[in-house]
Design a protein around this nucleic acid. Structure first.
Lengths: 134, 134
DNA sequence: ACATAACGTAACTTTACTAGTTGCGTTAAT
DNA sequence: ATTAACGCAACTAGTAAAGTTACGTTATGT
């Protein structure tokens, strides 16, 4: 499948839930709709549960549903819950680098942090209810 | 090695060149300094040559040097030359999707394009000369 | 002329990450 | 007790980037 599909899967699923919040969905149903595997669904939605966006219930009539009203869940909430960083963060590994590289890294990192922050701000302007009717 | 290191390699190399623009460097020297392989260097710097930022010369005394003054080369020039997109672009593949997914994709894509644009603007504010002395 | 030292490029291997899959334990409704 | 769901660990498969090898081309210098 494509890469970086966790955010797509999460947003897609939550958008559908926003349209019918009382409907409890199983990971199998969600996976079928999204064209993926139930374990992958549980993996991704599990992050959203940890972040308090979703509730999952085990057992016979179990499944997934929103933890709060869909107009109180923004795209930023989902993005942050997944710890995604669509903005590639420079992963520093090699400690013993030259001074030029240090200066560069500082400069680029600060720009990337700014950008990431403004991305989050923009995403927080839209709720998962709103996105449906765009 | 780490992922997405092309931009790091390119910026690092150009910053050094900015400090001594007349010095012609071989891909072996550059690779040694950056802790990578000469072929990788030629691959990455080749993109910068295509974009008109670098000049390479073959033969005995060949090597790499800046194509213009380092204070006329911005971080954005390098970023664009590599066609990097640090901002993850949603790669759409599956044509037959539901309407909710379409609406989502439009919304997220438009935000990402905005963000990418502001990243480029920020990067264009710094030249490879300036970054050294930060 | 010829040897040398550089780039250019194609083809292959390695590495790292993500998605996908299998299997099994746990939980709760019927 | 059976069934149908999640939770999770472990493994496999696919993919993209880096790394490597090999060889051709080009220009310099003796």
């Amino acid at each position: 499948m494509k890469r970086n599909s966790r955010l797509s899967l999460a947003l897609h699923t939550l958008s559908h839930m926003a349209g019918d919040p009382d409907h409890v969905r199983t990971s199998v149903d969600i996976a079928d709709h999204a064209g993926t595997n139930p374990v992958v669904v549980r993996r991704v939605l599990g992050r959203l549960r940890e972040a308090g966006l979703l509730i999952s219930e085990k057992g016979h009539a179990g499944g997934w549903r929103l933890a709060r009203s869909p107009n109180l869940i923004t795209l930023a909430d989902v993005y942050l819950a997944l710890d995604e960083s669509l903005v590639a963060t420079e992963k520093d590994e090699h400690s013993p680098t030259c001074s030029v590289e240090h200066a560069l890294h500082r400069r680029v990192s600060s720009v990337m942090k700014e950008i990431e922050q403004s991305l989050i701000e923009r995403l927080s302007e839209t709720t998962i209810s709103e996105v449906r009717g765009e």
